[in-house]
Design a binder for these strands. Structure first.
Lengths: 249, 249
DNA sequence: CAGCGTCTGTCGGCCAGCCGACATCGATCC
DNA sequence: GGATCGATGTCGGCTGGCCGACAGACGCTG
């Protein structure tokens, strides 16, 4: 074991803040658990899993329930959220096809602290806690993958937290849209289509504001020609402009 | 999709919100990584680690730097924080003796997104990324332990996020104090001593407010006889009262 | 001891954004 | 077709808490 004294570091700081491209590169990869899985692992996973179906609005699990399963979303969309004491719904994130959820409480043991609710008809694989644990112990590579997923979540949540503290509402909305489009958007030339229907209320719940404020921020963005919205789906017309709104100013 | 603002309507149950005891039980255990390690693992860890020393204010690592090490705090106190674009410091958490930090970016790969800064003279074990990864792959139990740590962080951060969205400043401060005292406080009869010196600015940075507001909230709490502060160390005189302030009202 | 830097306490002006209230616009369902 | 229900827009009043400013207090250091 080497002993090393590190000199006081009042080093020049000022690393550039993460921008959309950076976020995309680090976020897209680890989020899709099933896709990262080799076919042999996938088969093994199927062996210990149960297929379950949920309709729009159904809860996969609720806060307070024992966290007895890990879930993999095969199709559909699931919303992970928490209720504030006042009954306000706070959305932590959405899960899309291929993603894992419910992992944290299984690793930690203890009950759920969040709710998982299907936003549309969804098919999930449910794997009992102990089986999944065994599975990971036998396949260390998968344990690493799980850690990556947790780490990504942690990073995203940390970023959301910082945004919430530091930015005003319009900046938060802009950043949310950029984050979502980096992960789930389809890029067509300079434009980006975000094929996820979102109500103003949901955006408000993700960003920590009131519905009315979201309405006004969005109409301001439309007026500036930054984006348009069709049938609840956001269509970014000028990503550059949107980026400017989040960075400087 | 239905967004329920008031849960009481549809939710048949209504699980009680987590209180201090609950938080303590789930948080204390997994946070102290070194203590959970058996002696044989500890020795193995020492084999691949380098001991480093940092003085008060030194950075263990900064945001933007490559995340090349995992760290274990043997003694001292380290602050994990992020800088907002405006230069505001946002404290995500403190690490105390025995805890691991810098894990998330190593698992995920990519650079640091947070800063780790020693609050007092600290001694850490630094383990290079690849070695730690090997170590985990050879010791699946430790991989599980790491996942527990990440999961706990995720839970705490989620809770902080919800607090920030839902609660006003005085509630946030009260909850912060309860959280800290659940983990790090010494209970003497009905009173709790929190042996961690905290400036108002630091509290503000954890809770997302201004320093002035923290000052006034704290003096209000003192006036109510909830707590007293001696030399920057909080002393809770009536935990019950503090709990009431966070729950109902 | 003086001098200095950091932390605490307090006050008042000011404004972002919350909240209630309503009107409209589509869907969906008899 | 009407009726119902959720999502949008828009407006104004009200206020929590931010921010600048300044005055002690406390603990270092020379």
């Amino acid at each position: 074991m080497t002993i090393k004294i590190v000199a006081a570091a009042t080093a020049p700081q000022g690393y550039p803040p993460a921008d959309a491209a950076d976020i995309a590169s680090t976020l897209v990869a680890p989020s899709n658990f099933l896709a990262q899985l080799g076919p042999e692992y996938y088969a093994a996973l199927l062996d210990i899993a149960t297929v379950q179906h949920f309709g729009k609005g159904d809860f996969v699990f609720r806060a307070g329930a024992p966290g007895s399963n890990v879930y993999f979303l095969r199709s559909g969309k699931v919303k992970i959220h928490q209720l504030s004491p006042l009954g306000r719904e706070i959305i932590l994130w959405f899960c899309f096809s291929g993603e894992i959820f419910g992992l944290a409480e299984v690793a930690r043991g203890g009950g759920r602290v969040v709710n998982a609710q299907a936003c549309e008809a969804s098919e999930v694989l449910a794997v009992p806690q102990e089986k999944f644990r065994d599975f990971l112990e036998r396949n260390p590579r998968l344990a690493m993958l799980s850690m990556q997923v947790l780490s990504s979540r942690l990073r995203v949540l940390g970023e959301m937290f910082v945004n919430l503290v530091a930015d005003d509402v319009s900046t938060r909305v802009a950043k949310l849209i950029l984050r979502l489009s980096a992960r789930y958007g389809t890029r067509v030339g300079k434009e980006v289509f975000l094929n996820i229907p979102l109500t103003h209320q949901e955006i408000a719940d993700m960003v920590g504001t009131s519905r009315q404020t979201v309405t006004s921020v969005l109409s301001s963005l439309k007026r500036q020609g930054v984006l348009s919205i069709d049938n609840r789906r956001i269509h970014i017309e000028s990503e550059e402009l949107l980026n400017e709104l989040t960075h400087g100013s």
